[in-house]
Design a protein around this nucleic acid. Structure first.
Length: 337
DNA sequence: AATTTCACG
DNA sequence: ACGTACGTGAAATTA
């Protein structure tokens, strides 16, 4: 429609119309926001609403997924046929879909338990960064603490926008951030994003050292490891092509963190399974969504199961920072979350 | 069959 | 000069 100077194109020379691109064009033409709304609604309809009812098993009236243990390179599970690890939650209409996931009958309730900021806690532990460990130990809201450090202000002076930016930065750290990537996500100039990253590494020097050490290890050995010794091999870590090498370096940083979180929840799942059996409880672990476990629990077992789940999740792998979980129950998956 | 987009953590 | 945040799976579109 010629509403932008240099339209971004995909590698096959088509005009990019992904959400990130369109959002930047919302003010250029009234059609843009209509397209975005249409896209989000048709996504929900075609992927979930039109499909899931047909997948109900007539034998038991329930939907069954498969969990793959040897697909994700980091050690995470993946879920398919259908994927129950990407059920909507972020939009209002999406949340209606999540409400359809309910306990087996009226005597049962759904219990959801999830780890709080587990990957950041793991990077704090693995890097042994004194400041980040201190922030977690003092029970501070980590994104607020990061904002105060990066902007050089007091905790109480952190605005919502600053906290939101710091949260984006913290996520970026886990993924192997670049100033370009951060500038795109925060919609700020490269100069500003570079400055934020520079400040971040000044305040959390252990994090930078951990990243450098991890990449050096990958160069020397050709793989990186989680705390439990799970390896990810990185064949491109010595590539002469900077782009390809950059991907491998970000994988080197991310895999030990994401992979350790995967190890942790898997250990918790084994321990919980055994404990439920040992106590002859009727509660059943029915789903895993990377940092969350969902249980179908007889209402009279809820208090006992909550204690077991919290204990096994928190104590699966010891970290030098607290490991915290959030849990709640509900008449559907949205309420329980 | 490959690519693009978008749902989730 | 170049490309650019990690991990998935499913549906629609393109070639």
């Amino acid at each position: 429609m010629k509403i932008v100077e240099n339209p971004k194109q995909t590698k096959t020379k088509q005009y990019s119309t992904g959400e990130d691109i369109l959002i930047k064009l919302v003010n250029k033409h009234p059609i843009i926001s209509e397209i975005l709304e249409f896209r989000s609604l048709t996504k929900l309809k075609s992927t979930y609403v039109d499909v899931l009812p047909g997948l109900i098993n007539p034998r038991d009236g329930r939907i069954h997924t498969s969990y793959n243990q040897a697909v994700a390179a980091t050690g995470r599970l993946s879920s398919n046929n259908p994927n129950l690890q990407n059920i909507p939650i972020r939009t209002e209409k999406g949340r209606e879909i999540r409400k359809a996931f309910v306990p087996r009958n009226e005597k049962y309730t759904l219990l959801s338990a999830d780890y709080s900021q587990i990957e950041l806690r793991i990077i704090a532990h693995m890097s042994q960064d004194a400041d980040m460990i201190g922030d977690f130990r003092s029970g501070l809201d980590i994104h607020t603490a990061t904002a105060a450090k990066v902007y050089g202000i007091k905790l109480e002076d952190v605005t919502k926008e600053m906290r939101r930016n710091a949260k984006t930065v913290n996520f970026g750290i886990i993924y192997g951030i670049s100033s370009f990537g951060l500038s795109e996500r925060l919609n700020i100039p490269r100069k500003e994003s570079s400055e934020i990253i520079r400040q971040y590494f000044t305040k959390y020097p252990g994090i930078r050292q951990f990243m450098e050490k991890t990449i050096a290890f990958a160069r020397a050995h050709g793989f990186v490891e989680t705390m439990m010794g799970r390896r990810r091999y990185l064949r491109d870590i010595l590539s002469a092509n900077a782009t390809i090498r950059g991907f491998a370096e970000r994988n080197a940083i991310n895999a030990p963190i994401q992979g350790t979180a995967a190890d942790m929840i898997k250990i918790a799942m084994i321990d919980i399974f055994q404990e439920l059996n040992k106590r002859n409880l009727k509660a059943r672990m029915i789903m895993q969504v990377h940092d969350e476990l969902v249980f179908d629990v007889p209402k009279n077992e809820t208090e006992e199961v909550k204690i077991i789940v919290a204990d096994k999740m928190k104590n699966a792998i010891h970290l030098d920072v607290p490991v915290e979980t959030e849990m709640s129950i509900g008449e559907n998956w949205l309420e329980a979350h």
